[in-house]
C-alpha cells in the first residue's frame, strides 16, 4: 500500500515539476508522509492487515511448536499441520502415533487423543473462548472480535508485522499474560503464548 502511494506520489511529483508546482506539492507530500506515521493512522494500518488476512481465505500449513513448561525439564517439541477453513473452523493435527487432533468449529471444541474424544462448548468456557479468539479472529481478520477480548499493540515495519494481544477478560488473565502473533503480508508466521506461571510456547508456521 505504501509502495503504491509512493509510486503515485513520485509520478505526480514528476508531472508537477514540469508544471512549476513543485514546491507546493513537495510541501503537501511531506505533510502526507508525516500523517502516515502519526498514531492516528495506526488503526487504519491494523484494519488494512485485517483486510489482507480476511482476503487470504483458508490455509493449510505445517507447523513446529516448542512448549516450555515449568513442570518439565525439557521443552516439548511437536510438529503437525494446521488447517483453517473460513469462517470459523480451525484444525490442528499432530504428527506421529496417536497424534492428537484438536478442532474448533464455531462454538464447539473437539479434542481427540488416542481413543479419548472430548467435546467442549466454548460458551461454557469463557477463558478458552477468549483464547481461541486470539488466532481465530486473527485468521478471519475479525478486528471487532479481537478488540473485544484484547488490548492490541500493532507494529508494522518494512515487510513484517507484529500483533501483541493483552487479554482484557480477567478469566483469561488468570492464565495468559500476552499472545504475540508475527506475520508477513496476509500470512501469520508465528504465534507465541506467554502464560502467568512463566510457561511459554512458540509455534512457527512453515509455508511451502
Amino acid at each position: 500500500m505504501n509502495d503504491r502511494l509512493m509510486n503515485t506520489a513520485v509520478t505526480a511529483w514528476m508531472g508537477a515539476r514540469k508544471a512549476g508546482l513543485a514546491p507546493v506539492l513537495l510541501g503537501a507530500g511531506i505533510l502526507f508522509y508525516l500523517s502516515l506515521l502519526s498514531p492516528l493512522q495506526a488503526g487504519e494500518g491494523l484494519q488494512g492487515l485485517m483486510d489482507r488476512l480476511a482476503s487470504a481465505g483458508g490455509t493449510e500449513v505445517s507447523f513446529v511448536e516448542e512448549k516450555h513448561l515449568d513442570m518439565l525439564d525439557v521443552p516439548l517439541i511437536q510438529k503437525g499441520r494446521l488447517r483453517f477453513i473460513p469462517p470459523d473452523r480451525f484444525e490442528r493435527v499432530l504428527e506421529g502415533p496417536g497424534g492428537g487432533r484438536f478442532v474448533i468449529d464455531g462454538q464447539r471444541v473437539l479434542q481427540q487423543q488416542g481413543d479419548t474424544r472430548r467435546e467442549l462448548d466454548l460458551e461454557q468456557l469463557p477463558a478458552v473462548q477468549a483464547f481461541a479468539a486470539s488466532f481465530g479472529a486473527t485468521l478471519r481478520g475479525d478486528l471487532e472480535m479481537l478488540q473485544k477480548y484484547y488490548e492490541i499493540n500493532f507494529d508494522d515495519t518494512a515487510d513484517t508485522w507484529v500483533l501483541e494481544l493483552l487479554p482484557k477478560d480477567p478469566r483469561l488473565q488468570r492464565f495468559v499474560t500476552r499472545i504475540v502473533l508475527r506475520g508477513q503480508g496476509g500470512l501469520v508466521k508465528r504465534m507465541e503464548v506467554y502464560e502467568v506461571n512463566g510457561d511459554w510456547s512458540d509455534m512457527r508456521l512453515l509455508y511451502e
Binding site: L76, L94, G98, F102, L120, F175, V176
Partner: peptide
Amino acid sequence: EILRSPLSTF
C-alpha cells in the same frame, strides 16, 4: 499427551 494440547494452558 494432554500437555501437548492447546488447551493444556487451562
